Lab assay of single mutants.
Amino acid sequence: KYKEAKESFQRFLENHEKMTSTTRYKKAEQMFGEMEVWNAISERDRLEIYEDVL
């Protein structure tokens, strides 16, 4: 289930129109921090996936 959450988060970042190569992690956290997809995984994993996607 956790792996699915990580994959969902990656797809979310890859497909969200507001995500560009210039979007900083903290800005994304402000935009999406309340969303379930954002909070479903640990911050360490979130940051790792974020850096992989951008």
Results as ranks from 00 to 15, higher is better:
residue 24 R to S: 15
residue 42 S to A: 13
residue 39 N to D: 02
residue 42 S to L: 09
residue 26 K to D: 15
residue 43 E to Q: 09
residue 44 R to H: 14
residue 39 N to E: 05
residue 24 R to H: 15
residue 11 R to I: 07
residue 26 K to N: 08
residue 19 M to D: 04
residue 52 D to M: 15
residue 47 L to I: 14
residue 31 M to Y: 04
residue 21 S to K: 13
residue 12 F to S: 07
residue 50 Y to K: 03
residue 51 E to M: 09
residue 29 E to Y: 00
residue 29 E to S: 03
residue 12 F to V: 04
residue 51 E to C: 11
residue 38 W to S: 08
residue 51 E to A: 10
residue 22 T to S: 11
residue 8 S to V: 12
residue 40 A to E: 09
residue 37 V to I: 13
residue 6 K to L: 11
residue 14 E to N: 02
residue 1 K to A: 00
residue 1 K to L: 02
residue 22 T to G: 13
residue 48 E to G: 07
residue 13 L to S: 04
residue 28 A to P: 05
residue 33 G to E: 05
residue 33 G to V: 01
residue 43 E to C: 06
residue 45 D to R: 01
residue 4 E to H: 11
residue 6 K to W: 01
residue 33 G to Y: 02
residue 52 D to A: 12
residue 33 G to P: 02
residue 16 H to E: 13
residue 40 A to G: 11
residue 47 L to G: 08
residue 4 E to W: 03
residue 10 Q to E: 03
residue 19 M to F: 12
residue 42 S to R: 09
residue 8 S to T: 11
residue 44 R to W: 07
residue 23 T to S: 04
residue 42 S to T: 14
residue 16 H to G: 04
residue 21 S to W: 08
residue 41 I to G: 06
residue 29 E to H: 00
residue 53 V to Y: 15
residue 53 V to K: 08
residue 21 S to H: 15
residue 20 T to K: 08
residue 2 Y to T: 01
residue 34 E to F: 04
residue 49 I to W: 01
residue 45 D to N: 05
residue 18 K to Q: 09
residue 27 K to L: 12
residue 49 I to F: 02
residue 52 D to F: 05
residue 51 E to K: 14
residue 31 M to P: 00
residue 53 V to D: 14
residue 29 E to P: 04
residue 7 E to D: 12
residue 37 V to S: 00
residue 25 Y to A: 05
residue 44 R to K: 15
residue 22 T to Y: 13
residue 23 T to Y: 00
residue 22 T to Q: 14
residue 14 E to V: 14
residue 30 Q to Y: 04
residue 52 D to Y: 14
residue 29 E to L: 03
residue 37 V to Q: 04
residue 6 K to T: 03
residue 24 R to Y: 10
residue 30 Q to K: 11
residue 7 E to W: 02
residue 49 I to G: 03
residue 45 D to S: 05
residue 50 Y to E: 07
residue 32 F to T: 07
residue 53 V to G: 05
residue 30 Q to R: 10
residue 19 M to R: 05
residue 26 K to T: 15
residue 25 Y to G: 06
residue 51 E to W: 06
residue 24 R to E: 15
residue 5 A to I: 02
residue 2 Y to L: 08
residue 48 E to F: 02
residue 31 M to Q: 10
residue 41 I to S: 05
residue 42 S to W: 00
residue 46 R to L: 00
residue 16 H to I: 00
residue 8 S to K: 11
residue 1 K to T: 05
residue 29 E to Q: 08
residue 49 I to R: 08
residue 22 T to F: 08
residue 47 L to S: 08
residue 34 E to M: 11
residue 52 D to N: 15
